[in-house]
Amino acid sequence: MEKIQFRLSGTGGQGLITAGIILGEAAVLDNKEVIQTQSYGPEARGGASKAEVIISNDEIFYPKVSVPDFLLTMSQEAAKKYGQEIKEGGIILVDSSMVSNFENPQAKIIEIPITKLAREEIGKNFVANIIALGAIVGITKIVTFESLKEAVLNRIPTGSEEINIKALELGLQWGSM
């Protein structure tokens, strides 16, 4: 496997850094090489924030995403800031309940109403990041669903397993469509 670069972007508070860590931990469970970085400070709390994950079968040297193969964008501001930076033929997953009028002719655009699904199907806004993770894996198959599930369960507070797994499966389903 060539190295695949993910950029997860949105607003502070959407849980994108957690999502990045979970994706990275799932890759570790799959015995892949992985590096995760993120934006820090005020940037991580408001405005457009991002988490980056690089996954590869070989050792990864340069730790930052140069040009992403895959972009998740979950806010209008993030879409504006990061939306045009994508590898030719890359994939952009757009949270269509948060981002409107998004265009990028270089990439394959997949629209899923992630936040709306979290609110209406699960009843909790805060699982939007988990739905996004399910969708990312549904689309890319970058890690096995078993590893992703394990990684989610390792990170979430006890008592919230059921809704998180439900969210993950919902995302996987949408992503696999």
Binding site: G24, A27, Q36, T37, P63
Partner: peptide, 10 residues
């Protein structure tokens, strides 16, 4: 440095 301190790696 900020990169080595903050990045997560396997």
């Amino acid at each position: 440095d900020e990169i080595v301190g903050h990045m997560r790696e396997k």
